[in-house]
Nucleic acid binder design. Structure first.
Lengths: 236, 236
DNA sequence: TCAGTTCTAGTCAAGCTGACTATAACTAAT
DNA sequence: ATTAGTTATAGTCAGCTTGACTAGAACTGA
């Protein structure tokens, strides 16, 4: 924070920098309970400001790509992930987000399926964190993630976004576990399945998941496409 | 559209320009029916590209102001309006939004109260349009307004945003007229008032609106603050 | 005084939700 | 082979919300 005063005049002259960042969510089994939990990959900053601190993956916007393309390229380059869902979150443009320079960040949020998440790159400078145990991140990234979490919970309650955290086939109990992990409270299995079965986007298959220590549950499939924001309406 | 090919190389070099624009909504009585309708102020472009066409009010981002401040300054300068509600809509960054240069627009949407809207500047280059009769606007501004309308309808159905289109005191019938104007369908008066009266943010006053040709309706007051997006949570 | 209008309260059936019970279908231990 | 344990799945019931509708209250203007 001392750094702030260093180059006020520079800051007045340079145009505001434009960056794209992404909050990436995936489910991973908890170490203890084994039940799915929300995890977020972060990258370590290798330059000032906030050198050494963890931050959201991000980078500049190149001229040949749309905002969404930039977000998804970025995501691939830093973490090796291909998202199953990608949506714009918010444009953050507060004056003092970065001590050195005025930066406007257009932030996206993404969901990746567990298979993807399992084989994601992890290295010295890329690491996954539990969404509820992030520590102090660079810039205003803690606040950004809080907002992304709020949005995810909201979309989950209304929209049909939960399925993008699962594979192609899933049991209703798995869907419930997703809801429980994200909303952080237990849900009544019977009532939950009644609601889910009432949504037309969920299709019953004639497959069953074998191998459990109990009655094998039926597998279902999601047959809806996202689509709401301008980018996903009809990308020109 | 011919213009597009003119200076491809220039475009590759210059950094993407960052602009702030705002979709402003207000209610005005319809010419014919007299019932309130949604109107939007637009400004005429005095430069290429799209010279002479109508467009959303907007402008550049200066260094000393946040995104929201830029939107509200802009709004004041171009239309003389002070909004009662202001929220970020979306960041539009398609490659071909502007034929001459790559422009990323962070768009806000605003609601203004009828008293404000009545004394708003109108001139050769600023004019109000009915939201459903806009004609062909500059850039992708038709699509932006469509999205803003979608968002307004959505927020209206859930949130408590309708009251920002009204003055401090209002009758329940006026609230209903707002809903009817925005959602574009008639609502049952009895059921509607039951719902509104159930929301805790609506406070009964002991005033009545006199002067009608019928039983004078009671006046109510809205006692809630907006608050949801990062800007409005706690502006630092 | 009465007709016309809107305001306002209330009723009723249909649908959804949360809490709960009960049975089905499998595995693992006895 | 039987039984206990576990999850899957269906169903019931009361409480709440919602849409359609009825009816009276309160004002104005003829």
């Amino acid at each position: 924070m001392y750094r702030t005063a260093a180059n006020v005049s520079e800051r007045q002259l340079a145009p505001p920098a434009l960056a794209i960042s992404t909050v990436i969510f995936a489910l991973r089994p908890s170490e203890r309970s084994g039940r799915p939990t929300l995890w977020i990959p972060l990258v370590r900053r290798i330059r000032e400001p906030f050198k050494g601190r963890w931050a959201l993956p991000g980078g500049p916007l190149t001229h040949s790509e749309s905002l969404q393309d930039a977000a998804s390229r970025n995501l691939r380059e830093t973490t090796g992930l291909a998202p199953s869902y990608l949506e714009q979150l918010y444009a953050f443009g507060g004056l003092h987000r970065s001590p050195s320079q005025r930066v406007v960040s257009i932030v996206y949020w993404a969901l990746v399926q567990p298979t993807e998440a399992a084989l994601a790159d992890e290295s010295e400078n890329v690491r996954w964190f539990r969404a509820d145990r992030l520590g102090d991140l660079a810039f205003d990234h803690n606040a950004i993630i809080d907002y992304a979490l709020w949005r995810l919970r909201n979309k989950m309650a209304y929209g049909s976004v939960a399925y993008h955290l699962l594979g192609e086939f899933f049991t209703l109990a798995q869907v419930r576990e997703v809801y429980e992990a994200v909303l952080d409270r237990e849900l009544d299995p019977a009532n939950f399945r009644r609601q889910i079965k009432a949504t037309p986007e969920i299709e019953e298959t004639d497959q069953y998941l074998q191998g459990g220590k109990h009655r094998p549950p039926r597998l279902y499939r999601f047959t809806g496409r996202p689509g709401l924001d301008p980018d996903n309406r009809s990308t020109p």
